[in-house]
Computed example of a mutant assay.
Amino acid sequence: MSVHLNHTIMPARDRDATAAFLVEILGLEQAPEFGPFRVVSLGNDVSIDVVQAGDDLPSQHYAFLVGEEEFDQIWGRIKERGLTYWADPFHQRSGQINTNDGGRGLYWSDPNGHNLEIITVPYGG
């Protein structure tokens, strides 16, 4: 059997608001409650399990591989909400996207300061 990522846990200051933010921006199904988590299901049978945490959260990075059409839709929702986005993970190139590896990518922050990314081509092409 090969190894596949099944889920990861995302700490949040407000579990429900964070799950709703991800669902809205990424265009996903509503996140059901499972124990202490809101389970945000992604298209490849992987989930982000959002859990309530304290105020002092370390910033984490979450990258999502999306198709060209999904990229345009997500980018549109980011712009509609007036969210700042960057072409790079260090947030130096504001209001730009990148074309790394022949695809498109951008970064933005969630309400907890986590660094979110969408790309249309995996790193390394």
Score class of each variant (00 low, 15 high):
M1K: 10
H4W: 10
H4G: 10
L5W: 04
L5P: 01
I9H: 10
M10K: 05
R13E: 04
D14M: 06
A17H: 02
A19D: 05
A20M: 03
L22H: 10
E24K: 12
L26M: 14
G27I: 04
E29H: 07
A31Q: 12
P36L: 09
V40N: 05
V46Q: 10
V50K: 00
V51P: 00
G54V: 03
G54K: 02
P58R: 09
Q60V: 15
H61S: 11
Y62F: 14
F64T: 01
V66R: 06
E70Q: 15
D72Q: 12
I74C: 01
I74M: 08
W75C: 11
G76P: 06
G76D: 05
R77Q: 08
I78T: 11
I78Y: 06
K79V: 01
R81W: 04
R81M: 11
L83G: 00
W86K: 01
P89H: 13
F90Y: 12
H91D: 10
Q92Y: 01
Q92W: 01
G95I: 09
Q96I: 02
T99Q: 13
T99K: 09
T99H: 14
L106I: 03
L106C: 15
Y107L: 04
W108M: 06
N112D: 15
H114Q: 08
N115F: 01
N115T: 14
I119M: 15
T120S: 13
T120V: 09
